[in-house]
Nucleic acid binder design. Structure first.
Lengths: 136, 136
DNA sequence: ATGCAAATGATAATTATTATCATATGAAAA
DNA sequence: TTTTCATATGATAATAATTATCATTTGCAT
């Protein structure tokens, strides 16, 4: 009988390993560039494909935006994003959420996280001078 | 001398009015479709342009995703999203965030909101049967 | 070794969003 | 009012990010 044939390919291992080795939150394209040295023939779509898959399997985090960014850490944590330069950093704060309203709406809670926006130290200092504003 | 000449156009008024009249969180395209009856000759890019502008002016909210969704309410509130069907509903709960860690990182706090994921009542009931999963 | 489903990489397609630019329009001045 | 003209619009094209298609390759189970 046919068992489901799930393969552990070199590219899959390296993509996950590389993402996990980073403290930053790369885009698919940035990760693709990083990985090129280890896997010169890899295609960008393979990176996308596997990132999306890891995300759905709960192995990595995904931060939606334009473009999306990925996160090798899965321990529950939050992000703070600089509204000027777009950089995202980790933030380990405990956020207590009252579930009463959630129950009232009839939802079964899965996960939650806080998205914090601010001005990073660097941009804050520079804000008196020129203004360079990123999108996303 | 030239004063800045900011115009209140019909399309701008209608786009904002229409978004505010909704309790849902439409995409630019959905809003564009709604508006067609009131402004038959409007272009999709005008809708995008103005939504982006309202967002930057702080008049409306924007929920990033693929595609992005817009929110006519600005009073601080949070969203709960169904991980199965993708629907987003409002959630008015007070979430206190400890700013000590934020200060430590040197950020100047601007705003924050909680993104909650769960299974809505409808999808929860149906989850025993077929599984229809949306993207975003 | 062999069979074969699953994964890859090349390419093309799609989706969402944004830029360009000629034309139209609203606000202020005359 | 009429005129002026910067700003907004709509048509079109362009771009950016992501996803689909499909022939080929590669691991896993026999």
């Amino acid at each position: 009988m046919k068992t489901k044939n799930i393969k552990v390919t070199k590219q899959r291992e390296i993509i996950l390993d590389e993402l996990r080795s980073l403290v930053t939150h790369p885009t698919a394209d940035e990760l693709y560039t990083n990985i090129k040295s280890r896997l010169p023939r890899v295609g960008l779509c393979t990176v996308y494909r596997n990132l999306e898959r890891f995300y759905k399997e709960g192995l990595i985090g995904k931060i939606k935006g334009k473009p999306c960014r990925y996160d090798g850490k899965i321990e529950s944590h939050n992000h703070i994003k600089c509204i000027n330069c777009g950089k995202i950093e980790d933030l380990f704060v405990d956020i207590p959420v009252d579930t009463v309203e959630i129950d009232k709406l009839g939802y079964k809670l899965h996960s939650y996280k806080v998205e914090i926006n601010g001005l990073c130290r660097k941009c804050n200092k520079e804000s008196g001078r020129k203004k360079h504003v990123n999108k996303t």
